[in-house]
Write a protein that binds this DNA or RNA. Sequence first.
DNA 1: CAATGTGAAGACCTTCACAGCC
DNA 2: GGCTGTGAAGGTCTTCACATTG
Lengths: 222, 222
Amino acid sequence: MSPSERPIPTTTVSRLPLYLRALERLLELGESTVPSEKLAEVAGVSAANLRKDLATFGSFGTRGSGYDIKNLKVRIASVLGADTEWKVAIAGIGNLGLALANYPILAGPSFMVAALFDTDNAKIGTKILGMPIRHIDEMPLAVAEENLRMGVITTPAGVAQDVANKMMSSGIKSILNFAPALILAGEGVLVRNVDVALHLLVLSYHERSGQNGTGLSRNSGR
Amino acid sequence: MSPSERPIPTTTVSRLPLYLRALERLLELGESTVPSEKLAEVAGVSAANLRKDLATFGSFGTRGSGYDIKNLKVRIASVLGADTEWKVAIAGIGNLGLALANYPILAGPSFMVAALFDTDNAKIGTKILGMPIRHIDEMPLAVAEENLRMGVITTPAGVAQDVANKMMSSGIKSILNFAPALILAGEGVLVRNVDVALHLLVLSYHERSGQNGTGLSRNSGR
DNA sequence: CAATGTGAAGACCTTCACAGCC
DNA sequence: GGCTGTGAAGGTCTTCACATTG
């Protein structure tokens, strides 16, 4: 448990998960070592950018041969906190909430869906994956008792801010918001918006104004 | 149909949908005009940033009173192409694909789910929202015949690139990828990754390294 | 000799601050 | 007077290019 490294630029942080993915793919392909050029290509960034990113928290390449994949993977995972298991709460158990509760990655080593909340009395008490759907008013207690650290909002837009407020006042500082609504976050709280409509509008601009993409895939990060 | 304005920086494009959202909220509140200061606050950006963004494609504020909300909304919608209806195809009709097919925004004025694809014979032929689930091999034909312009990938990671390739070779140039996989895009193709795991990893870093957020909500864009 | 790590340069983006307009 | 639109300044991020190292 490395407590706190030197602060890393947000642009870099948003690319680290990409590198993790790329490293995983390379491992699957049976590689054990990789030069920045290749890793950058798989991740969809420039080699210089990749090296600068890695340099912000250490230097663990070998000149002449590149990076040891397993080693780098462990290192990045540690920086990101992916070596810990974070307990995630989902609020709003409709189609999307259900889909996410069953999402494979959320069942991976780093994240675990540990609580489900809704306000619909017809749903409360029902069990999903062995977990009962609880009323959202029970959130403060549940967060404290079960050490829930992240919240996912999959409610309708109208109540998204209320739900976010409830999460924040319960002590949750990291929120992933799927509701098509702008969320005002409190001090020290990080909200990542995964707003499908917003993404589609960016794609819409791309369609409207002809092809101007570089061909590289970009993440919603930032 | 304004054909092609002067190119707009991607950072600006990724904020325009936020402004659209903010303007909608202000309209609901009964406002009809708004100064940059207020609009920026609702959208979660700085006032100067907002004004610079708008300046990239025109100038339609009124000094002394601000912006006419309806007018600005129409203007931004036009720049983004949100005044057109884009037909969206969804590939991978599992929990997540189903949830998105039923997603309210996709039923809004700008986007319309017009085709569903899968490879599971048990699902093919089944109707969702009146639409049959078709085999993914029918995609090239469907894209051409029905003028599908955007693709949403909600398949397992393992086949995501194959599905993306199929979309691209069918002529789709705008892809929203929900699969936890890196997608290599062709020339002129824009892929937006909505990778839940990637977002959670960024949140994980935030948790790990203590509160360093500004309190402002940021979108996945870029 | 191949490939990293990194100053320096360059590109891009945001903020500042104010002239100009309603 | 209030507020936009915008040059100029300030920051931040990315790319370049190369000295350095295994």
